[in-house]
């Protein structure tokens, strides 16, 4: 094993290396949430289904972090923002692969990618999720 997730249960990793965020859906409240909980954070309903969230969305907010915050082991600067997933009516806090704020614009298409944070003491890559500018519409998921 040469890589591991920064935390279990945040995303699925597929055979081709792509990832999908793991969220929850409550049929009774008809609301999605992320990360997956055992109850709906909007109604308290316990009818939670585990779902993979859309891997494509639009940019709703962004900045770049220019100094390493406490506990952070990755490179700086790094992009940070909010991506809106229209299918789920959800806004997700996320890293962005683009760390130059001037290179981004409101509403631009974004796609989910795995993002290596750092390599740990055992030489294992620690992976999290990030969103990247979606410049290849042809590759868009049909989900």
């Amino acid at each position: 094993m040469t890589s591991r997730a920064v935390h279990d249960g945040l995303f699925d990793t597929r055979a081709d290396g792509s990832i999908a965020l793991i969220g929850g859906y409550s049929p009774s409240s008809r609301k999605y949430h992320f990360p997956l909980l055992t109850t709906c954070p909007y109604t308290g309903a316990a009818d939670i289904e585990r779902v993979e969230l859309s891997t494509h969305g639009t940019l709703w907010g962004w900045t770049a972090v220019t100094a390493p915050p406490p506990g952070y082991l990755g490179a700086i600067p790094y992009g940070f923002g909010v991506v809106e997933l229209p299918a789920e009516k959800l806004r997700v806090i996320t890293r962005l692969t683009e760390s130059d704020p001037t290179a981004l614009r409101y509403g631009q298409p974004m796609r989910l990618v795995p993002d290596v944070l750092h390599t740990d003491d055992d030489g294992v890559d620690v992976v999290t999720w990030a969103f990247s500018s979606d410049t290849e519409p042809a590759a868009r998921s049909t989900r």
Binding site: H7, P69, Y72
Partner: peptide, 12 residues
């Protein structure tokens, strides 16, 4: 893990 992933910086 949220700190490790850079998702815990208050100013951001």
């Amino acid at each position: 893990w949220r700190e490790e992933a850079g998702l815990a910086a208050t100013p951001s």
